[in-house]
Amino acid sequence: MPAKTSFIRYSDDVETRPAGEDDTIAEIIATMTSESRKVADREGHTVRASHAKANAFLKGELRVLDGLPPELRQGLFAEARTYPVVVRMAQGPGEHLPDSVSTHRGMAIKVLDARGPKIDGHAEDTQDFVLATGPVFPNPDAAKFLGAIKGIEKHAGKDDALKAAVSSVALQLDKVVTAVKGDHSPLLDFFGHTPRHPLTDTYYSQAALRYGDHVAKISAVPVSPGQAALGDAPMDTSGRPDAFRDATAAYFGDEGAEFEIRVQLCTDLETMPVEDASVRWPEDESPYRAVARLVLPRQDALGEARRAYVTERLSFRPAHSLAAHRPLGSLMRARLATYPALAAYRQKQNGAEGIEPTSLDQIPD
């Protein structure tokens, strides 16, 4: 970083809540609940309204790096220590689709023994980071997301072949955009993500969060030699509806994976807005910098007991947060309300009791 770099100090003023946002969020919850009902009618079971199809359920460690500079030594990362974590890797849609429908992906990290003041409504010692492929979200705020999710809700539970065709077209168009502009289209990548191995993707918070005294975004970047050896070429999903899941489980049957957790600190609220999640923060002004290693050892990533426990009883949500990492901006405010409502609906429909674990021993092997 340049010696004179100035980082934006966190204060309540970094957020600006528009009029009518609560009504918008209520409509998002209603729309996504309707989507869940439609999918349940087809699948016979209520699944997550997003990231329904998991590729792996993992136990591991988050190892905070030693010797971080003061601006990075914040919140969960204030001291060099190791936290136990539960990780869920999944495809993006809120239904189980064949992998010929290659859309955005998610990585949800639940950090245990995360002590300190929490945001309102959260009491347990956990910190969740909900990440996805793509450095930005396709929609800037809650209002625009509502418009997008209404379109998705209309087609929930319908023809897989149509969704595969949309995914394929989006992927091809994104290749053209990337060739011309040198970067992916967030919207096209959302619907037509390159079907590479899930362990070779980088995952992002996309929207902003508090980072102790500062404001930041977070990413998880694959760094192990085994992951590098996988390459980034597209996988052949022809006739393989669970190609991504099978490949991820096979990898963890042989060796472990590591992701470097990196933080991009906000230096300018004009070029790095908090309220617009669709704006990419310029990395030449503030690069992502390493703060920790996410270490996921060799293990059975799809064991039935673990799958049932994580799928039915756990929820990963931005609202599971230390005050030091409070989610920020319109999209995150929508998530703070939407995730708990949808999790409660899913667990009620399935007769499952939600739980926040306090130890990895509670997670089945």
Results as ranks from 00 to 15, higher is better:
78 A>Y: 02
54 A>I: 06
44 G>M: 12
149 I>K: 06
15 E>R: 05
300 D>Y: 06
275 E>C: 04
24 T>I: 13
155 H>F: 14
202 T>Q: 10
2 P>W: 12
355 I>H: 14
294 L>Y: 00
123 A>P: 02
1 M>E: 09
322 L>G: 00
253 G>Q: 07
141 D>T: 02
217 K>W: 01
287 P>V: 13
228 A>N: 05
262 R>T: 12
244 F>V: 07
353 E>I: 13
262 R>W: 03
33 T>M: 11
273 P>C: 08
364 P>E: 13
254 D>M: 07
69 P>Y: 05
285 E>T: 10
296 L>M: 03
162 L>N: 06
117 P>Q: 07
140 P>F: 06
123 A>E: 15
25 I>N: 00
41 D>Q: 13
278 S>H: 10
255 E>Q: 15
334 A>E: 01
328 L>R: 00
298 R>P: 01
298 R>H: 05
161 A>C: 04
350 N>M: 13
298 R>S: 02
63 R>E: 15
147 G>L: 15
26 A>T: 08
228 A>T: 11
22 D>W: 01
337 A>E: 11
256 G>R: 09
320 H>G: 00
197 H>Y: 14
309 Y>H: 14
187 L>N: 03
41 D>E: 13
62 L>C: 00
178 T>C: 11
343 A>W: 10
161 A>Y: 06
362 Q>W: 13
220 A>H: 05
205 S>V: 01
110 K>H: 04
151 G>I: 12
10 Y>W: 14
10 Y>A: 00
272 M>Q: 15
293 R>T: 14
115 R>K: 15
337 A>H: 07
149 I>F: 10
310 V>S: 02
357 P>V: 06
153 E>W: 03
198 P>Y: 07
124 E>C: 08
297 P>D: 08
264 Q>I: 04
337 A>D: 06
323 A>T: 09
187 L>W: 07
66 D>P: 05
317 R>T: 11
297 P>M: 06
1 M>A: 12
357 P>T: 10
317 R>A: 12
205 S>P: 02
323 A>E: 07
14 V>M: 06
119 I>A: 02
316 F>L: 04
318 P>R: 04
224 S>T: 08
166 V>T: 14
353 E>W: 08
181 K>M: 12
